[in-house]
Computed example of a mutant assay.
Amino acid sequence: MSDMFKVEIITRNSTDLEAFKMKMAEIGVSGMTFSHVQGCGLEEGYTELYRGVKKVQNVFDRLKIEIVVSSVPVDDIIKAASSVLHTGKAGDGKIFVYPVQQTIDINTGKQGPAAL
């Protein structure tokens, strides 16, 4: 069985998804999952006045992209994602890579890389 990896990207909510999907298609990525999430990190927050009380807002809307691959090199995904998502400002996001032990297609029953 060949190695499978999950690439998880947390980035700005304002990301151009069409440009990202086209870049992934160029390197052979055929499926992705997108989720809208919230989080905080090194990016500075801002102070807002709510009903006369100052409140520091440091939780931001983010986009979470999940990709599981076996035949596309993870380094290619990292390079392609970085080229599209990099702005040079705090909050560009992070990329995490995890090994995937098993994948099962519920519809067909295929397992491993064939299930992708």
Rank of each mutant, 00 (worst) to 15 (best):
S2K: 15
S2F: 05
D3Q: 11
M4D: 00
M4F: 00
V7N: 08
E8C: 06
I9A: 12
T11L: 15
T11N: 14
T11F: 13
T11R: 15
N13V: 14
S14L: 05
T15G: 05
D16Y: 00
A19Q: 04
A19N: 03
K23C: 02
M24H: 03
A25L: 13
A25R: 08
E26W: 00
G28D: 06
S30W: 00
S30Y: 00
S30A: 10
M32F: 04
T33W: 00
F34C: 10
S35G: 01
Q38V: 14
Q38G: 14
C40F: 15
C40M: 15
L42E: 14
L42G: 12
E43V: 12
G45F: 01
G45W: 01
G45C: 08
Y46S: 13
T47N: 12
L49Q: 09
Y50V: 11
G52R: 00
K54S: 04
K55Y: 10
V56F: 07
Q57M: 14
N58G: 05
V59C: 12
F60W: 12
R62E: 12
L63Q: 12
V68E: 07
V68S: 06
V72K: 06
V74W: 09
I77D: 05
I78H: 09
I78C: 11
K79D: 14
A80I: 07
A80D: 11
S82P: 08
S82M: 12
S83K: 11
V84Y: 06
V84G: 02
V84N: 03
L85V: 03
T87C: 07
G88P: 02
G88T: 00
K94R: 15
F96V: 13
F96E: 14
F96Y: 15
Y98S: 08
Y98I: 00
D105Y: 05
I106T: 03
N107M: 03
N107R: 06
N107E: 04
G109C: 00
G112D: 05
G112K: 07
P113W: 05
P113Y: 03
A114H: 10
A115Q: 12
